[in-house]
Design a protein around this nucleic acid. Structure first.
Lengths: 211, 211
DNA sequence: CCGGAACAGTACCGTAACGTACGGTACTAA
DNA sequence: TTAGTACCGTACGTTACGGTACTGTTCCGG
């Protein structure tokens, strides 16, 4: 979705909505957003149509902020692949443990309970599926270079995803106060990468053993 | 929580609440439950105090229904361990993909957004943590028998959890219409078990290779 | 100087849901 | 028979929120 057509003022309003849903997700009311953004409710309805429009625009606005560029698959040795995987893992852990992501996912999960699948699909598309689109070329490049042994990039991605995420996101969404320091994120990312390479790495070069 | 103090009639009411939140999670209103259960709102408030009390009782009632017995760790060879792990994995996939679990987790996630952590903690306690309590003795028995190599049962459990769950629960909660047939559940459970044993199995007996 | 667009602020309306109160009914025990 | 209990069904008060309309102010082009 094109975010260029958003006025600076409109972006400020959406940022206010984001801040509000972070500190009190269930209190994301139209009057609350208007008060927080110092704008009138009528303006909100003129700009975004209705409450769902505001929510959708907010989710897409946040998604447009975290978009990153692809990885260059040109030169890719084992060290580069390992480093790339660690980077993806750490990025993902940072994202899902951020207050913004937690609030957004809470909203989208609650919204998916209703009939309209809008927000859930958007969050999924810009979260898990975007990660898959970025990571799968790396996996396939690793296979072409003989670094990885896999016949289904999707299955390999889901394994990597599981090794990285484990129970973190669900625990956070359910209110578990987990501490995720930067050191732990780095350690978990390295461990997940090590395990993934143990499962999918080419066997000719045995990855460093001993966990 | 003791569920023995619940009248048969009260259990029927909670079942009605469960059914209602499964087919329309956001429409779980007191009047709706009363209508569905053919009881009066006054009775609901007399029995459960307020809306949160009803929700809590409903979640605990569902949790009390899925509780299962522990596994006997007496005789445990590699085949038994593999079978036990596959059973845990398939059970978990069946649970998280069930409409009941989806509705319950939606409710709990939305509820955790507010100040009270009640429902989220209950769901977490009877879901992920209950699974860990049941699985960790099996893992430690496997270590004592020399079948598994692990120094941290919690870390090993979380790896197993990740290999099994991957992105399934989040996708379902976000409204992704995933088909999870019994055959796929069995296949995924077997694959997760195979990968887990590849990571944590004792190396002296090389597990059957070829993915 | 003037007219209109854009917008903040606020008052207002309709609806939905929580929680309470009350009448009516069936059952039990003295 | 009568008092008491438990409960259903429903009507009611209250609050909260989505959405609309109105007023005043600022700014901009002519």
């Amino acid at each position: 979705m094109e975010m260029d057509q958003l006025t600076e003022r409109q972006k400020d309003v959406l940022d206010a909505a984001l801040a509000l849903m972070m500190e009190a997700g269930d209190q994301l009311t139209m009057a609350g957003v208007a008060r927080r953004a110092s704008c009138s409710k009528e303006t909100l309805y003129k700009w975004f149509g209705d409450r769902d429009g505001l929510l959708t625009a907010t989710v897409q606005w946040q998604a447009s902020k975290v978009r990153v560029g692809p990885v260059d698959r040109a030169r890719l040795d084992l060290a580069g692949l390992t480093s790339a995987l660690k980077g993806f893992a750490a990025d993902w852990l940072r994202v899902v443990s951020s207050p913004t992501s937690i609030a957004l996912n809470r909203l989208a999960v609650a919204h998916a309970g209703s009939d309209k699948p809008g927000l859930g699909a958007i969050v999924l598309e810009n979260g898990r599926f975007a990660l898959a689109r970025r990571l799968k070329p790396v996996l396939e490049a690793g296979r072409e270079k003989g670094l990885l042994v896999l016949d289904d990039a999707e299955a390999a991605f889901r394994t990597f995803f599981g090794l990285v995420a484990r129970d973190v996101q669900m625990r956070l969404l359910l209110g578990d106060r987990m501490k995720l320091t930067e050191a732990e994120i780095a350690g978990d990312a390295a461990e997940a990468t090590r395990q993934f390479l143990a499962l999918y790495g080419a066997p000719n070069r045995p990855a460093q053993s001993g966990h």
